[in-house]
Design a protein around this nucleic acid. Structure first.
Length: 381
RNA sequence: GGGCGCUUCGCAUAGCGGCAAUUGCAUCUGGCUGUAGACCAGACGUCUUUAUGACUACGGGGGUUCGAGUCCCUCAGCGCCCA
């Protein structure tokens, strides 16, 4: 990829651009810092935006420094009170990191990454040093952060430890001697805090690159696992294909730019999205799987045929009511739900719509049970 | 330390003693369509002999009452204000 694309495609802002360009021109190998959260080891396309950018730098011979924020994770973040996020043990952090880097390896050369756990230095930081560190920032400066301001205005609480996050992240930059820090636009403030601290200590300031936050499949909120609008890097080809196809039309261009190296081939949204889905599945699986997924999609979704590969389940009984069948096979969570689905016309047996909840189903050979549009199950006695 | 208030479906909300309980979002089903979205219709505690049915539910426990989400006491969690 051309060097000028490096700082433009899929990039929102570069601070300081001139400085960074000079550094590139000098041929110096830079240390590029990226923060990772070990609490959520499942990566999705949203993460891939930053990772793909890092990959470009890696290909130029720069060093990617991954900071695993295990220290903060182990303290637990009470901001999200609804979840009462549990503290992670050392083993859990390690296990998460392992799955994390396995997925990162789909994009970056994992062997060349420098991995640092921030517990390495925070564990040793005593109170006196922490106070000294905090003295290097003013409360005003910290409260400038957008979400703090908003929460203060609206009366939502801001826990006092939260103001430490930007400070800790800034400290990370000092320790790993970052030349550049890369992150989503939501990280801008924290990354700039790194610059502040470096300047304050008379160190060279890191440059900051922000990348866009990918909007999720719903077309509204940023992609995240908890919202459920995500496309996971480890999703099965068919599922991945389907999810890409369900992306809002307005996002097609954005997805091409941020998630692939390709360009949108055509104006037609359906065709463009098929190409997009095929490209993305090809990236995280392979071309063969992508082609198969496309066939499957056309067959099942476009032509409404039965999928080629359906899960099977054996039942021990010879006959039972339709409601019980849904319950037994786990296609419905309760009898009431099963009844509801049947009454609303969402249940088919061998392609025939069923409307009678109490009818008895005789099990002999194989029958195909369909619930809703996507759930299929092959049942044998 | 003193005063006030909050806790109801995944989230958010209504609820001045008759409530399986409002509304929005989310979710699910059906319709429409180029997949999705948007849009339209419906559902959204469980169970059954499907009924003006039974049971379980409005933070926990106790009480008043024919009857309590609603009133009283108490415990817990959370928040606001004054000092």
């Amino acid at each position: 990829m051309a060097q000028n694309d490096l700082l433009t495609r899929g990039v929102v802002e570069v601070i300081e651009k001139d400085h960074l360009e000079k550094a590139f021109a000098s041929g110096k190998k830079l240390r590029i810092k990226y923060g990772a959260d070990p609490t959520a080891p499942d990566l999705h396309l949203g993460h891939s935006v930053a990772l793909r950018k890092l990959k470009e730098f890696q290909d130029q011979g720069h060093t990617i420094v991954f900071i695993i924020g295990d220290y903060t994770a182990r303290i637990g973040d009470p901001t999200d009170r609804s979840k009462a996020r549990p503290m992670l043990s050392e083993q859990e952090v390690k296990a998460n990191a392992k799955t994390y880097f396995k997925q990162v390896g789909k994009i970056l050369n994992a062997k060349k990454i420098e991995i640092r756990y921030n517990s390495e230095w925070f564990r040793k930081l005593d109170l006196a040093s922490l106070i000294k560190l905090m003295a290097e920032f003013t409360v005003q400066r910290i409260l400038e952060r957008d979400d703090f301001t908003k929460r203060l205005k609206s009366g939502t609480e801001v826990h006092s430890h939260e103001v430490l996050y930007p400070i800790m992240q800034a400290y990370d930059s000092i320790i790993v001697e970052a030349d550049v820090e890369l992150g989503g636009t939501d990280q801008k403030f924290n990354m700039l805090a790194g610059r502040d601290l470096q300047r304050h200590r008379g160190l060279p300031q890191q440059d900051v690159i922000t990348v866009p936050l990918l909007v999720g499949t719903d077309g509204v909120k940023k992609m995240s696992k908890s919202v459920g609008n995500y496309i996971g890097l480890t999703d099965e080809p068919n599922e991945m294909f389907r999810k890409v196809m369900s992306v809002n039309d307005d996002l097609i261009d954005q997805y091409f730019t941020l998630c692939t190296d390709a360009k949108r081939p055509t104006e037609d949204p359906r065709e463009a999205k098929l190409a997009l889905a095929k490209t993305i599945v090809g990236m995280y699986h392979d071309a063969k799987a992508a082609a198969a997924a496309e066939d499957e999609f056309v067959r099942v979704v476009s032509n409404k045929e039965i999928p080629s590969d359906i899960e099977r389940k054996k039942l021990k009984v010879k006959s039972l009511s339709l409601t019980d069948l849904l319950l037994e096979t786990g296609m419905a969570a309760s009898k009431s739900e099963a009844r509801r689905l049947i009454e609303q016309g969402g249940v088919k047996l061998d392609g025939e719509r069923q409307t009678e909840p109490m009818r008895t189903v005789a099990l002999g050979g194989e029958i195909v049970l369909q619930v809703g549009k996507h759930k299929f199950l092959k049942i044998s006695a």
